[in-house]
Amino acid sequence: MSDSLSVEELSQFRSWLASMPDDDLERILAKEWQDGSFNLSQKDKERLSQLKERIMDQCSPKRRIQGIVATFFKIAALIAIPVLCYTTWHWRSYSKQLADQSIVFSTQKGERSTISLPDGTLVILNELSSLSYSPGIFNSKSRQLDFEGEAFFQVAKDSLRPFTVKSAGLRVTVLGTQFNLMDRVSENAELFLKDGKVMVFSILSSQSAELSKGDRAILSRNDGQLTILRSTNAEQESLAWLDHNIVLKKASFVEVLDRITKHYGVTFEANWEPAEDDTFTGTLPSDDLEGALSILEIVYHIRASISGRTVRISK
């Protein structure tokens, strides 16, 4: 629908629209949706990420649980009041710490952030990752973080207060060191130790291992088994993302496309695929879609053309 109607045309358009049943309009819209190509202004694109945050807020499971069990907590609170009154005195100093809300850092798609923690530890957070800690507890006896995603940690030395990172599958305890940790729900978790010593504990299998410099621990998402690898190019592979690269190891063509889709938010249309065992190992730039595609063009002898958010692949 165009904005260049005259006022007179608008009144005709109004009567036309009023005469159209919803079902007919649906048919017109459906065709438009299937056939059309869509472009957004830069301003609207920027608003999309704010909109996403609002949507994710509403979809967060924590809030839903609050709704379901709110009634239970109301009743529980009534019962708990006398008990609380009695114990408040004894707990006062401790609850002060608990009252501190935890501090959360998180990154969106394509975003990276460097965080400096109160103890001097430096964390480089890769995209789609989050890290949180309670400031009241963090500095006193131990240093504890909750973590998801991928990050490189440069932990400040402090032999009296162990530094612990807890992710979905792993608990990593260190005294002072540098390591890269990746724990994303869809993949196996991975820890690469650049320097120093760490203890790794698999939450699923209760297996633990001590790593030393250069080691890489891989946690199987299925059974919680830890595998320790010592390979010469581990550092290069594990830390390539720090140099703005997407790292792929023996990835099938579909996996390669999947990583690019996740990273750049583009859709692929391909009428061709290579043999199953034709895998890709290497890095692709994470801030240059055309550059990444041109590498694929050379490796697979294909042509990739970008139109909007769609990439067409042909032989």
Binding site: F38, L48, K52, C59, S60, L128, R309
Partner: peptide, 20 residues
């Protein structure tokens, strides 16, 4: 229940839907 998959789908389709 993967929020990441949801976020990916948003990234793929939200701009089309908004433009539409």
């Amino acid at each position: 229940g993967s929020e990441r998959a949801f976020s990916d789908l948003y990234n793929i389709y939200a701009h089309q839907l908004l433009a539409f």
